[in-house]
Design a protein around this nucleic acid. Structure first.
Lengths: 300, 300
DNA sequence: TGCAATCATACCTTTAAAGGTATTAAATGA
DNA sequence: TCATTTAATACCTTTAAAGGTATGATTGCA
């Protein structure tokens, strides 16, 4: 075999070099001198190279021995580092977390969670991307994201979904709009407005909830598919292109030209959930999940 | 022990990763599946880290496993390199040779030997320095040089001295000097001249031979200690500061203003020898010694 | 010449790991 | 539900290496 090299032997070899004396080296290693001699002999045999000249009063390193001395130190250092890194990864201290989110969660729970998590695990990297609930579920299966902030729904059993809060809905409407003078509004009052929604399907996620609310109020909303990005939606609202139905935490985002009206009755709610793969082997994620729960309890 | 990591296990681990299947990996390693499973288990136990998720149809790497996969590859590569380097050093293919020389050997035998040796071992570095025979013997003991080109003499038994050639002596004299018109000269004709010699002692080496030759001719030379460097000596000769007695191979160095006169009788000779440590463990040097012998036979 | 130091050798015991076969357990999928 | 796949477990043998003690060989030094 090519790698008939034993790290233990390399370590022993370095101790012998430090002492330049088999007896003392053996003492330092808490073994007798003959076993140590044989360990070095075995190393030499495995390499096919003589490492020491056994000149009597004082042994000497051969040229090859000097080369190996340098290399062995490097190897042991690298092995040590590898063990460290592996164990740290195991404890979730290093690595990365890719987050998907839809809607308003970015306005409070996601940044707060990341901030708190960072205090404990500063070396974990975050990648955050906005996508619809449906896209997130797909991305979770394909392992493109590690955790999704979604509107809860029935999912494949490979995933776990945990609702972390419920929010009331608010209507984002242009400040100049006639209806904007009230601060409460009923859904039926909006039946002639354009509803700004995302590009994707309406069967799930935030847009799905919007459709459901309208249908329950007895009308089919006049939707305009614009974008999934919350900031852009608000931009379109300000530009008087329509109204948007959003979770109330959106109120954290104050935007010129846009006002938020509470939707009545207040029983109309939308839930936010986190979803992740059941078989996740990632301690980074497990630790993050705990932080998210803690933050969710505080915020709501 | 810290390094209870077995390189064999790391290699096995990488094969399992490539196959992502214990059975196939075992097959590739020509062992049965249970021993392979145990090897991975042992690796995991030694690290204190789970590397695979044994999900049934398809195993998965954990986050820590992914980290180790990267590190293990690096380690194995480095070990491989270390073995290569050590073995090459053992064969004398890499390393360095420090040469000391006195007198004229630099004008032919040293550069020719280095040139020939380089063809076979291009990666060995050479360091060449001029010093007297006495200094070289000291430097050999202190391992500051690996081989010396000296005027042969009795040495400590830790060194080996091997004469490689004998040369006649020539007199380097200024072209303008009255004696420079002849092309042979007897030593007694120089008894009133200044003899340019090195800084160091006259009991051995080239300068020692010069003293001996003069004493045998019945006079005590009028010496001027200038420098050990041959090129500078020739410079002083050209500047008419005196004459120098040098081995005939110095004639390879043609210098404006300096002529070389053969010394008669031609029985007056000086030997050149190489010296090295008996306990040298250096294959680079052993190979170089062979080359030097070959060159010495050709040149003389 | 004999002593001290130092590493190698011989010979023994113990231990750990590797390797094998047979079987079990779990999970998927038809 | 049953067959199939796949890894783990149980149990065994063999082997290699580690460890020990006693002793021998070499060499420098007093």
């Amino acid at each position: 075999m090519l790698f008939d090299i034993d790290l233990q032997h390399l370590q022993t070899f370095l101790v012998v070099i430090e002492e330049m004396n088999f007896g003392r080296a053996a003492e330092r290693l808490h073994i007798a001198q003959p076993p140590l001699s044989r360990q070095i002999q075995r190393l030499e045999k495995n390499l096919g190279v003589e490492l020491f000249l056994r000149t009597k009063p004082q042994i000497q390193l051969t040229a090859a021995g000097k080369v190996l001395a340098v290399e062995a130190k490097k190897i042991l250092k690298q092995v040590d580092l590898a063990v460290q890194l592996t164990q740290r990864a195991n404890r979730g201290e290093i690595g990365q977390i890719v987050i998907g989110f839809e809607g308003s969660s970015l306005s409070d729970i996601v940044p707060l969670s990341i901030k708190m998590y960072r205090q404990q695990f500063p070396e974990v990297k975050f990648y955050v991307q906005e996508m619809s609930t449906a896209e997130q579920l797909q991305a979770l299966h394909e392992e493109r994201i590690d955790i999704g902030f979604i509107v809860p729904q029935q999912v494949n059993q490979a995933l776990i979904v945990e609702t972390i809060r419920e929010e009331r809905l608010v209507v984002a409407i242009a400040k100049s709009h006639p209806l904007a003078t009230q601060d409460k509004i009923e859904i039926r009052q909006l039946q002639n407005e354009h509803f700004l929604v995302g590009f994707r399907d309406f069967r799930c996620g935030l847009d799905g909830e919007v459709m459901k609310v309208c249908h329950q109020a007895g009308f089919n909303p006049n939707v305009v598919q614009v974008t999934n990005e919350m900031q852009l939606i608000l931009g379109f609202v300000a530009a008087q292109m329509g109204v948007a139905l959003l979770p109330s935490s959106i109120k954290n985002i104050v935007r010129e030209g846009v006002v938020y009206l509470s939707l009545v009755p207040s029983t109309v709610k939308i839930a936010l959930a986190i979803a992740w793969r059941k078989d996740t082997s990632c301690s980074t994620l497990e630790n993050f999940l705990q932080v998210v729960s803690k933050i969710a309890n505080k915020v709501s």
